[in-house]
Amino acid sequence: MQKGEQKGMQKGEATLLQSLLARRFGALPDAIRARLANATVEQLESWALKILDAKSLDEVFDGD
């Protein structure tokens, strides 16, 4: 049950982050969409915080 909750949380965060990234930087490449879908919750949260300061999509994922 906990595994299902974790997967649901990951999917929700990935969907939200995808929307935020698309709004800020435009259409997302398929590679970025796949990266979001396969990311851990921790990675998604880290990338979400980087949106605030990043000037490009590459800066969000730089170093990860």
Rank of each mutant, 00 (worst) to 15 (best):
M1I: 05
Q2L: 14
Q2G: 08
G4N: 13
E5F: 10
Q6R: 14
Q6P: 00
Q6C: 02
Q6N: 04
K7L: 12
K7T: 10
Q10D: 05
Q10M: 09
K11Q: 12
K11N: 10
T15H: 12
T15S: 12
L17Y: 03
S19T: 15
L21H: 01
A22T: 15
A22Y: 01
R23A: 08
R23T: 04
R23V: 00
R23E: 03
R23P: 00
R23K: 12
F25R: 03
A27V: 13
A27Y: 07
A27I: 11
A27D: 14
A31T: 10
A31L: 07
I32P: 02
I32H: 08
I32W: 04
R33Q: 14
R33V: 07
R33L: 14
A34L: 14
A34M: 14
L36W: 10
L36Y: 07
L36Q: 10
N38C: 04
A39L: 11
V41L: 11
E42V: 13
Q43K: 13
L44P: 00
E45W: 09
E45D: 11
E45P: 03
S46D: 07
W47I: 05
W47D: 00
A48W: 03
K50Q: 14
I51N: 04
I51Q: 05
I51K: 02
I51A: 09
L52D: 03
L52C: 00
D53S: 12
A54N: 03
A54L: 04
A54E: 02
S56C: 04
E59F: 05
V60A: 05
D62S: 13
G63M: 08
D64P: 02
